[in-house]
Every structure is written in structure tokens, then in C-alpha cells.
Amino acid sequence: MANLTLVDNKHLGLIINRLCYQLIEDHGTFNDTVLLGLQPRGVFFAERIVEKLKTISPKANIKYGKVDPTFYRDDFRRSDKTLLAQPTEIPYDLEGKKVVLMDDVLYTGRTIRAGIECLLEYGRPSSIELMVLIDRRLSRELPIEPTYLGLSVDSYDNQKVKVIWNGESGDKVQLLTDK
């Protein structure tokens, strides 16, 4: 595996900052908004965003939860991996709310589809937006596009884009190539 760092800790901080300001521009006080991190790795990304939002806009009424797409995935009994569930924590009624779903890497779009199906069980939101840190835009298998985007990456299928949270040199995004 050859590793290439696409985004280092400092750059990632800048991206998160920009995404936060975009969110504030669109959602204002966040009164009608619920932010949801997708389990497992989207939660790290969502937590960074929530943390930053609270420092930029301390008075905003930020509602944050976690959603686990496992039980809604379309590869149950079809993949070699066992699909194990992570906690879903949505302590809010989503009826009529503006939901922002967050994940670290958008690849085929199948996880996002499962995540959307899961959160719909908690009520009918007025809208669902998608925020991703990395968009592997050439690999989509479903018609799903991000509303808020950190960085677009073009990659091959034998490559893997991995976001390392809390690594030795802080957070970073790496492109791993299988040789």
C-alpha cells in the first residue's frame, strides 16, 4: 500500500471552518435543523463540525445525533464482511426539521441511501441535505450528490480514501493504493 496524504491537519481545519460558515449561512440559528453523523466514521467528522460551530456561533441551538445505516444496507448476506450495528442516537423528533446528514467519504452512495432510509423512521423531515468531507466523484452507483462538500477526489477502484481521525499528526486524509 503506497500512501499519499491528500489533506493534512491544517488544511482539514480550514475545510471544516469553511463548511461551518456555509452551514451558518444556510441554517442561521439552527432552530429547525438537526445535524446527524453517519456511523461509524461520519460521527468523527460530524463531531469536528459541531465543536467548531459551537465556537463560531455559541448561541446557536445545535441539535446533533448519530444514525447507523447497518440494518438498512443492501449488502446483507451479500458481502463477506459481517455487518455489525453501531448505536443510533436521535433524541429529537425529525418531523418537519431540516436534516443535515454528515459522512467522511462519499463513495458509491449506498451507505447514504441506507442512512436516509433509517432516519426517515424518526419522522418526515422537511428536507435532507448531505455534507461530506471527501467526494470520490467518479465511483457513484446511486444518484446521490453532496450539498456541502469538503474536497473532490478522483480515484480508481483499487484505491482507498481514508480519513484518519486523531492520528499522530492530528487528522488527515490519505489515498491508499493497492499495489
Binding site: D68, T70, F71, Y72, R73, F76, A85, Q86, P87, T88, E89, E117, E121, Y122, G123
Partner: peptide, 16 residues
């Protein structure tokens, strides 16, 4: 633990 959470949702059913 996760299924117990499912059983307390408004819609208590998953399509797995």
C-alpha cells in the same frame, strides 16, 4: 443493545 433501540423507535421495524 442496538435492536433494543430499534424497538423504541416510532417505527419498530428494520428491513435487514
Amino acid at each position: 443493545d442496538e435492536f433494543k433501540e430499534v424497538l423504541n423507535r416510532p417505527i419498530k421495524k428494520v428491513p435487514s
